[in-house]
């Protein structure tokens, strides 16, 4: 064989060897090293969570229940005379101050999928490397409306790796400075329901984060596994906790 041919074969061989090393490194980085990073972050966050609970400012605010809009179908007659009806007792809601982005503020536990992780504020890339993140602009868990929490499904500890295994009625506990808020998984809305009962949407489907009547927790993660093409959504409704009686009358 000519030296030029030998050099070409050798060069091709080395290219494939380095490509193999690169790909092996990629797999190791994604499936092992990112888990180590998140595990280390989670240890530090969990250690500081009790301190956060002790320091965070909790205040009492008056709860204004959401009244669905729409035309009234009943007519009431108000007498012209007589004393006005008594004012209803104000309903008091406990509210905590929001944390800085990247700070731990809650612990989320889902016994059905053996999940117990610390939640941080924010959904930037660096926030989600630490653990599940709360979407800023949505209410905190335990508050009226729709609290949205996102998390990795495959890498960085895969906190929401088994989200697809949740069934209707499974309980999700979120411990915050106010106490433990318990949510129950509800049926996926028809507009996003797949044949197997999951809610799958595009990454740009912002309607899943919109405010809802009552108190809801919406968990979002990538779908399917090993792809960020779509989002898997789990909707859960508050069933008990420090504010449940005020918001949902539980």
């Amino acid at each position: 064989m000519r030296p030029k041919t030998i050099r070409a074969i050798r060069g091709t061989g080395w290219t494939f060897i380095w490509l193999g090393v690169y790909l092996l490194g990629f797999v190791a980085y994604q499936l092992w090293f990112t888990n180590l990073l998140t595990a280390r972050e989670q240890s530090a966050l969990a250690a500081g969570l009790d301190e956060h609970f002790a320091e965070v400012v909790v205040e009492e605010v008056e709860y204004e229940p959401v009244i669905p809009s729409g035309p009234s179908t009943t007519t009431t007659t108000v007498p012209d005379t007589g004393p006005p009806p008594p004012e209803p007792e104000p309903r008091i809601l406990l509210q905590e101050a929001a944390s800085e982005e990247g700070e731990a503020f809650a612990q989320i536990r889902i016994p059905a999928v053996d999940l117990d992780v610390t939640v941080v504020e924010g959904v930037r890339r660096r926030d989600l490397k630490k653990g599940p993140g709360h979407l800023p602009g949505t209410p905190l868990p335990g508050q009226p409306g729709n609290a949205v929490v996102s998390g990795h499904r495959t890498t960085y500890g895969a906190p929401f790796g088994d989200l697809g295994d949740l069934a209707i009625g499974d309980l999700i506990e979120v411990e915050t400075a106010l106490g433990t808020h318990v949510y129950a998984v509800r049926e996926a809305p028809e507009r996003c329901r797949t044949d197997d009962g999951l809610c799958v949407v595009a990454p740009t489907d912002l309607w899943v984060t919109e405010p809802r009547e009552g108190a809801w927790l919406t968990l979002t993660t990538c779908h399917p596994r090993f792809s960020s093409r779509q989002r898997l959504i789990v909707f859960a409704e508050l069933v008990s906790g420090p504010n449940a009686e005020v918001i949902v009358g539980a």
Binding site: G25, F26, Y29, Q30, T34, V123, R124, R125, L128, G133, L135, V148, S150, G151, H152, R153, T154, T155, Y156, A158, F160, V201, P203, T204, D205, L206, V208, T209, T220, T221, C222, F226, S227, S228, R231, L232, I233
Partner: peptide, 16 residues
């Protein structure tokens, strides 16, 4: 690795 990793799992946030 980070860029390629985003194709595998970008964190699951909606609208980001």
């Amino acid at each position: 690795y980070e860029v390629l990793g985003d194709l595998l799992d970008s964190g699951g946030a909606v609208g980001q």
